[in-house]
Design a protein around this nucleic acid. Sequence first.
DNA 1: CGTTTTTTAATGCGATCGCATGATAACGCT
DNA 2: AGCGTTATCATGCGATCGCATTAAAAAACG
Lengths: 201, 201
Amino acid sequence: MPKQVDHEQRRRLLTEAVFAVISTQGFEAVSLRDVAQQAGFSMGTVQHYFPTKQQMLSFALSHMRERVLARLQATVAALPEPTRRDLIRAATAVMLPVDPAGREEACVNIAFFSAATVTPAYAEQLRDGYGRILTVSIANFREASRLGELRDGIDPDVEAPGLYFLTQGLVGPILVGLYTPDQALALVDAQLDRVFRPISP
Amino acid sequence: MPKQVDHEQRRRLLTEAVFAVISTQGFEAVSLRDVAQQAGFSMGTVQHYFPTKQQMLSFALSHMRERVLARLQATVAALPEPTRRDLIRAATAVMLPVDPAGREEACVNIAFFSAATVTPAYAEQLRDGYGRILTVSIANFREASRLGELRDGIDPDVEAPGLYFLTQGLVGPILVGLYTPDQALALVDAQLDRVFRPISP
DNA sequence: CGTTTTTTAATGCGATCGCATGATAACGCT
DNA sequence: AGCGTTATCATGCGATCGCATTAAAAAACG
């Protein structure tokens, strides 16, 4: 057997090129030639790892989830003694385009959301991925509620989706420059202040 | 002088075809030929009213704002004696893809949001349009606050953007089937219940 | 009624697309 | 070392794209 190449790793490498093309030239500009050039390979190589463009994009979408999750874990790991509120805030901030990495991911995600309106396969992947995030968020809020970390009268089953969809709604406006990342984070913090009890017990 | 054709009206007609193509086949599938066929004209006609594809799409984006606004006014006009809360809720519901018309508009809007990440002209149009909506929403909430229609401790400058971005964040998940329109409206109503005083004084 | 100008249609062109094919180079194994 | 497999690349093909060009049809006006 010949040269040993980790197919999965190669695909991830090419996927990074896909992300770069989408975030700099747009989703509709993604071509096998562009991706190949961005990754520094020939077009045939891209075809070798992705038989069709559709499969390439579908893999890219599934890889995006892992990328966001990895960035979240890295962020959380950097917090010394995170409270539950810190964790929720970190997860929220990771989904917002507040830094170059986050912006690239947001561009890719919104592109796939748009494509998903006419491509059921993308819609299913997004439902699965974002549904999982929402489920985790609800679980976090319920746990916080159970431990008495939330203010009186706060329903975790309302606030979890509320904060989650608020976050999602901030992505587009930040991307087009309608809202600044600082304004967005201030809005998120205002919500957290309303939901969580003050720190000192 | 020959046949009198209202250029603006023709452009709006063709724009409706653009919307249909975007919502059924996707933004990247929009071609002059598709638009012409969808509108029942030849390709040359489309070119006559839109010198370039870019201008066609840009006009379509500007026309979208008018379409949403018209639908909002029609919805409001159908309300017998709307309270301020009713108006705010109507404006919110209009932006959500809860019916075929709203879904089509949402598909087009999210497509332009995606395109705007690499096309500054689109970003500027979206900033202007959505910024105007946000401004009006803030003004509405402030007026409600001034009239004492909001609960104690409610800051209109926080709740207006909060509800607005929450609404925006619900669009994508509804489109891909992660959230149902009923769930989305329930979440909106929960927010309104929290912000507004109960009806009976 | 003929002229003029706009509208509509039809077609061609260069570029680019996704994908298929064939050739070449590089490495693992017996 | 020699073979077999795989990775990589270069190229070709049919289709489609945006846009330019040209021509025919239609209607307002002298």
